[in-house]
Design a protein around this nucleic acid. Sequence first.
DNA 1: CTCAAATGAGACATATATGTCTCATGAACA
DNA 2: TGTTCATGAGACATATATGTCTCATTTGAG
Lengths: 184, 184
Amino acid sequence: MNNSLRPTTRDAIIEASFEILSRDPSAPLSDVADRAGVGRATLHRYFASRDDLVRALAMIAMEETEAAAEEACSDVSSYAEALEQTLKALIPLGDRHGFLALEPFDGDDDVDAAYARQMTEIRDMVDQAKQEGFFDLGVPTAWIAQAFDYLIYAGWESVKAGEATHQQAADLAWRTLTIGLGSK
Amino acid sequence: MNNSLRPTTRDAIIEASFEILSRDPSAPLSDVADRAGVGRATLHRYFASRDDLVRALAMIAMEETEAAAEEACSDVSSYAEALEQTLKALIPLGDRHGFLALEPFDGDDDVDAAYARQMTEIRDMVDQAKQEGFFDLGVPTAWIAQAFDYLIYAGWESVKAGEATHQQAADLAWRTLTIGLGSK
DNA sequence: CTCAAATGAGACATATATGTCTCATGAACA
DNA sequence: TGTTCATGAGACATATATGTCTCATTTGAG
């Protein structure tokens, strides 16, 4: 018995999809099915078409991202701390981020809307952190958000390469964003 | 008359390839040919197969990267300054970087060797800059190189989005790497 | 103007990925 | 034991990208 309706096969497909498609967005679905330990026909029973699968993955990636960020900010006393916790929470979701970044999206409305909303949230948090005196007011918010985003992905790559733990990568990324890597 | 052998058509194909394939590595060659303003058959006259084209692009991307970096370091008095000039020189080559990063490489030996050599060069420069007292010795070289790489790409995206000039993006990326974005 | 080389348009065969379908198998369960 | 349901294997038709080829047109040098 499972808590949600027949989870394992579907979840295996989804997880395999992230692993495969976040590296090669045009990989054949047979590769995905193989990785999931599932027949190609079964994959099509859960996701009628490649488009269906990709759309589902995009929504899942964004829901997970949003949930992780919200959870990370639940017990926080400043916007700067909220950003720090968000960064830490998002590094383990690097393959989701990679998937969203690499997939050449046609422009599904739901996906686009969710993406725009998340971007806005990050920028708002950065603006608030600026108001708290945490970031230099002279640096454009857009750049801070951009650097935030890319340093998260750099951290994930670093973890994936075995060069750091999640915690170490998060600390390094946050340090880079805030005080840089120069000597004192 | 052209200084090198029949340049324009080949160059148009190469430039179009970087534009198209750095966004969607699986885009059909007909799209590339269209963007280059060239027939699909002509593209195949210059590059027999998709593999030929991709390999050529990879080598070009790395030669250009190497040349730009070397040129940038020609008149420099420290390793830190060399890194700063390299960063500035590489931002306009963002589509080359994007191509190399996104293309799922099979593992052409020449390409792999050139890539490994460039990684080593960057790490060496970072190590030397550490010895100069420029970077914090407690931060792993691998992370500094990683952040260097990703901030270059973030800068290129920022330029592409119209949010900054090349110079501004380079300044922001370098500042982020060295002293961060926090307020004083 | 004349000729040779480069090109564009398009036909063609081929390869690969996709989506559908059928059927046999095996596990869960009454 | 018998039944049901999810699955795997594989056949099949289809769509798309690829690479080759031909031929008419254009371009540029002489």
